[in-house]
């Protein structure tokens, strides 16, 4: 029973990471590094809360997606069209998102750091499974968004590996020049990748505000955008891998809240995702293979 509760908690904590790391995969697979995911999550938390507060949970999600995509559009414009360093653009967006959210929170809710409480979706109990007692915490009072996130994993895997869109997206992330000579529109694919990542990061954000906490709190993302990047790397840029990594990181989060392990301060468990990611990148765990052209702006050669 306790294990099930812990796992249920892990799933809840993994969901925002999962959404965002799926988004990160689309962006990086198209060749655009997206450090701005944290910022996109932040605007997702705020505008999600705003939408949910005024128009209900569904609109919360819509607002969050639009907010995330708006920031993503800036990222695409700056880094794909203007070919500015993707890291710089992402960093600026994070600063911008923090400022914007605080500003609008103050203007709209007259408080700088919190929104009023908002109502989320009606929770689901999975039929049949919820009758099994020991599974109960896992399958009752489930946010629909958790289910959406989980469904998005096979969907993303299919999109990336089995569709024309996915093939072209991967090809511009690996070798934009080759893709271009074959008539693939590099700019369009990269915009698509970045915009999808913004939408998904926005969903990760709105999940936190609307479903997890029930309000917008300044700084509530607490670096989950970066953890999502870590999950993407840990999952070797694949949706299934991102799921495993997100669950692992979610579990680490759940443990820090629910379990006291004597001798290990909880901060050390919180470091785990970051430390593991470094280990993966250093090749201690296994080889990390990022898309070959990630981070490089594409310039069509003259002559």
């Amino acid at each position: 029973m306790f294990m099930a509760q812990l796992l249920a908690s892990a799933f809840r904590m993994a969901t925002p990471i999962l959404f965002t790391s799926l988004g990160a995969i689309y962006s990086e697979r198209s060749g655009v590094v997206n450090i701005g995911l944290e910022g996109m999550m932040i605007v997702g938390t705020f505008w999600g809360a705003y939408g949910a507060y005024n128009y209900g949970p569904l609109w919360g999600v819509v607002f969050a997606i639009v907010a995330g995509m708006t920031l993503a559009l800036i990222h695409a414009l700056v880094s794909v069209t203007f070919k500015v360093d993707q890291i710089i653009s992402g960093t600026a967006l994070n600063i911008l998102a923090a400022g914007l959210s605080r500003f609008f929170c103050l203007v709209i809710f007259t408080m700088a750091t919190t929104s009023p409480t908002v109502k989320g979706f009606t929770t689901w109990n999975l039929p049949l499974l919820s009758r099994i007692p020991w599974l109960k915490p896992m399958v009752t009072n489930l946010s629909p968004l958790i289910v959406v996130a989980l469904v998005l994993v096979p969907v993303s895997a299919f999109v990336l590996n089995r569709t024309v869109f996915g093939l072209r997206l991967r090809s511009v992330g690996e070798n934009p020049l080759a893709a271009d000579t074959l008539g693939v529109n590099v700019t369009a694919m990269r915009y698509a990748g970045v915009l999808i990542s913004g939408a998904l990061a926005g969903m990760g954000g709105v999940y936190m505000a609307m479903e997890h906490t029930g309000m917008y709190l300044e700084g509530m993302t607490g670096g989950r955008g970066f953890i999502a990047l870590a999950a993407m790397i840990f999952g070797n840029w694949t949706p299934t891998g991102a799921l495993v990594a997100s669950l692992l990181f979610g579990l680490a989060g759940a443990i820090t809240i629910r379990v006291q392990i004597p001798g290990i301060p909880y901060q050390f468990i919180q470091m785990l995702p970051y430390a593991l990611t470094i280990a993966v990148l250093a090749g201690v765990v296994r080889k990390a293979t990022p898309p070959a052209a990630a981070g490089q702006p594409y310039e069509r050669g003259e002559k």
Partner: peptide, 14 residues
């Protein structure tokens, strides 16, 4: 103008 991480087939049909 090939993409090493893709299969022969994917490279051809791209």
């Amino acid at each position: 103008m090939l993409i090493p991480r893709l299969s022969v087939m994917e490279n051809i049909i791209l």
